[in-house]
């Protein structure tokens, strides 16, 4: 049975854990604000770009651009999974890992090979433990710039053009609000025309081909950039709420333990009193 001193020690240790989680929560809150800023900045641009590209490619005749052409036979599939290097953020990383695992389990029979291109140490470890084929990993991705996403995008484009992969998917966490984030699975390549119909064709200057060739890489790198920023924002939000919960749980535990501690102390005092009274009574008799 735990002695008074053991309980006291336990309470102290929980208190110091709580001060750590509280600090981490505050740090995450600041980081969240910064990430959210970056996210808000790129949001409009990324969305308008997506719409514009959607409008342009619905007007293109079929099979004009290799990145827009769906291959008849899909053998090799690449999943780009974006998560983070660090833990202590609830289910953030394992949700991405799970989504990848599920995708592979569901599509195993359809395709010959499914490989993963991974962002973040935690998911890398998660997938490696499950013997999932990782072809490339990017760790320590912090504040990204456009040049970084351009590099990644051109890498992916090369994979597709060289025929190493016939389809590329993107899995990342989408930030909806500070308390809501969802895992998203999107088709990255080939680019699918949007469902909407747009009327009339454009007058192209200098030429349609030139515009399409210029806008597609730009669109893809914007998409990667947006997904990374989106994921980072979600990560900080997830960590913030995980730490908030941890802090709350600490308070609860300290309260319970303090109650036990006081009860136990009172019991000890009562017992000692009884001993003294009993002793005194016994002495009286002699």
């Amino acid at each position: 049975m735990a002695t008074l001193r053991d309980i006291k020690r336990k309470i102290n240790s929980i208190n110091s854990t709580q001060s750590i989680t509280r600090t981490m929560k505050m740090v995450s809150a600041t980081k969240l604000r910064r990430a959210q800023d970056a996210y808000e900045k790129i949001k409009d641009y990324a969305k308008k770009m997506e719409n514009l590209v959607g409008r342009i490619i619905t007007k293109l005749p079929k099979d004009t651009h290799p990145l827009l052409t769906e291959r008849e036979e899909i053998k090799n599939v690449l999943i780009v999974a974006i998560a983070s290097d660090r833990g202590l953020c609830g289910g953030f990383n394992s949700n991405i890992g799970l989504a990848v695992e599920n995708f592979i389990a569901q599509n195993k029979d359809k395709y010959e090979n499914i490989h993963v291109y991974v962002f973040g140490r935690k998911v890398r470890d998660y997938l490696a433990r499950r013997k999932i084929n990782i072809i490339k990993e990017r760790l320590d991705v912090k504040l990204v710039g456009m040049d970084f996403s351009e590099e990644v995008a051109s890498e992916l484009i090369k994979f597709y053009i060289d025929g190493e992969y016939d389809k590329i998917y993107l899995i990342y966490t989408h930030f909806e609000s500070a308390v809501k984030y969802v895992v998203r699975l999107e088709e990255f390549l080939p680019i699918m025309p949007s469902e909407e119909e747009y009327e009339g064709d454009y007058l192209y200057e200098p030429s349609r081909e030139k515009i399409v060739n210029a806008i597609i890489p730009k669109f893809l790198s914007t998409k990667i950039y947006y997904a990374i920023v989106d994921s980072q924002t979600s990560e900080h939000a997830a960590r913030m709420s995980a730490m908030e919960n941890a802090t709350k749980n600490c308070t609860e535990m300290v309260n319970t333990l303090t109650l036990i501690y006081n009860k136990r102390r009172q019991e000890g005092i009562t017992k000692e009193m009884l001993d003294i009274v009993g002793g005194a009574e016994a002495l009286k008799g002699t």
């Binding site: 342009i56 009339g200 064709d201 454009y202 007058l203 192209y204 200057e205 200098p206 349609r208 030139k210 515009i211 210029a214």
Partner: peptide, 19 residues
Amino acid sequence: KSELGEFGILPGHIQFLTT
């Protein structure tokens, strides 16, 4: 300015796409 030189847009312009 586009690759082919300057251009101007006034209301009623044709559907147009340029770098």
